[in-house]
Simulated assay, not measured.
Amino acid sequence: MRRVAVEPRPDWQAQVERLGFAFHTIDGETYWDESAAYAFTLEEIERDIETPTGEIEQLCFSFIERAIDDDAILTRLAIPQPQWALIRDSWRRGDRNLYGRLDLAYDGKGPAKLLEYNADTPTALFESGVVQWDWLEQAMARGALPPGCDQFNSLHERLIAAFAALRDPSPYRLHLTCVRDSAEDKGTVDYLQDCAVQAGLDARFTYIEEIGLLSDGRFCDGANLPIETLFKLYPWEWLFRENYADALATSRCQFVEPPWKALLSNKGLLACLWEMEPGHPNLLPAFFEGDPGCSGLGPRHVRKPLYSREGANIALIERGRVLDSDDGPYGAEGYVLQDAAILPAYDGNYAVLGSWLVASQPCGLCIREDTTPITKNSSRFLPHYIEP
């Protein structure tokens, strides 16, 4: 694994915009950064990223089997008790999941270490599946990269196949939703809607603020059309606290991601996995704050809220002193403490790898980079390639 300087395309903005990638620059700052790329060997991808990603996913399933009937675990995860039955029923029915992203610390030597699991509402999907692949093809065509390069990237094809599986055994209508006023969220949902259409679904978009409740208990869009299946780029922990949370279980709506994903998108998962598999090569020691086990953590550790998005309210601490942190609205439900991973630094840039799963199968890679060890919503996206 190495960071390689690459000459950006002189018209790169126009090139990514032609794909529909409108949020390449956020608040005047570069988000899509093709002035460099990360190069990997095939062995690094297969041995150190793809294989551990699949193993961690299976470990997560073992955790759900353990947690689903354990009230103590659900309580520690701060899951509202009125939603326990919804989660249990979803798992027992075998509700299908669509996609997720493991964030990993990896230095090219390994083993990769799990930082967190973005299991419910991960973004950076369109740029991972489409934009960086288009960049790779153009980079080879113009001689910026040698011929024969590849990419760990079958995201697009896997998403279409996963949507087709959701359609079986008969076609149905799919709604997709996100909040207003977020270009990144809307761009992600637009891409997923396109994948769903390619899979043969009747896919329709509605903002979450437009969703209502019919007299028969079903959710509906702004035109009062009943919602049968809903992809929601909106976290379960937020839905659980909405005014209509009591209607979730009786709405006859199939949710994507399914309710059981609420157990995996919780940072408490990190402590639970370590309790299950202490010493696992791809896990970092982690404990719920206040657990006696916290005394065994190294002098540098990370304090993470059970619920947090894009680095919010996360603090990097060394011997009681905060080295880096980010503000945000999270933390009321509690925290976990996790040993700090050593992120590789390249010319002052810290890289976090995002390993994608679609229908629980590893199938893609993205890289976010920042000048600090905490990856935030302002961190840049850099493409990658596999050397021939």
Score class of each variant (00 low, 15 high):
residue 49 I to W: 06
residue 49 I to L: 15
residue 49 I to P: 02
residue 49 I to Q: 03
residue 49 I to S: 06
residue 49 I to F: 09
residue 50 E to M: 10
residue 51 T to M: 06
residue 52 P to M: 07
residue 52 P to D: 06
residue 52 P to L: 12
residue 53 T to S: 15
residue 53 T to K: 05
residue 54 G to E: 09
residue 54 G to K: 07
residue 54 G to Y: 12
residue 54 G to M: 05
residue 56 I to K: 00
residue 56 I to D: 03
residue 56 I to C: 05
residue 56 I to V: 15
residue 56 I to L: 15
residue 57 E to F: 11
residue 57 E to R: 12
residue 57 E to W: 05
residue 58 Q to K: 13
residue 59 L to N: 11
residue 60 C to L: 08
residue 60 C to N: 05
residue 60 C to H: 09
residue 61 F to E: 05
residue 61 F to K: 13
residue 61 F to N: 03
residue 61 F to P: 01
residue 62 S to A: 13
residue 62 S to Y: 00
residue 62 S to F: 00
residue 63 F to S: 03
residue 63 F to E: 01
residue 64 I to T: 11
residue 64 I to E: 03
residue 64 I to R: 00
residue 65 E to V: 03
residue 65 E to Q: 14
residue 66 R to V: 03
residue 66 R to W: 02
residue 67 A to V: 14
residue 67 A to K: 08
residue 67 A to P: 06
residue 67 A to I: 09
residue 67 A to F: 04
residue 68 I to H: 05
residue 68 I to C: 06
residue 68 I to F: 07
residue 69 D to V: 11
residue 69 D to H: 12
residue 69 D to Q: 14
residue 70 D to I: 04
residue 70 D to L: 05
residue 70 D to T: 04
residue 72 A to T: 14
residue 73 I to T: 04
residue 74 L to W: 06
residue 74 L to T: 03
residue 74 L to G: 04
residue 74 L to M: 15
residue 75 T to H: 04
residue 75 T to S: 08
residue 76 R to D: 04
residue 76 R to Q: 06
residue 76 R to N: 02
residue 76 R to W: 01
residue 77 L to C: 04
residue 77 L to Q: 07
residue 77 L to Y: 06
residue 77 L to M: 15
residue 77 L to S: 02
residue 79 I to Q: 00
residue 79 I to A: 01
residue 80 P to M: 14
residue 80 P to V: 14
residue 80 P to K: 12
residue 80 P to H: 12
residue 81 Q to S: 03
residue 81 Q to K: 05
residue 82 P to H: 11
residue 83 Q to H: 10
residue 83 Q to I: 00
residue 83 Q to T: 02
residue 84 W to V: 08
residue 85 A to P: 00
residue 85 A to F: 01
residue 86 L to Y: 02
residue 87 I to P: 07
residue 87 I to W: 07
residue 87 I to L: 13
residue 87 I to T: 13
residue 87 I to S: 06
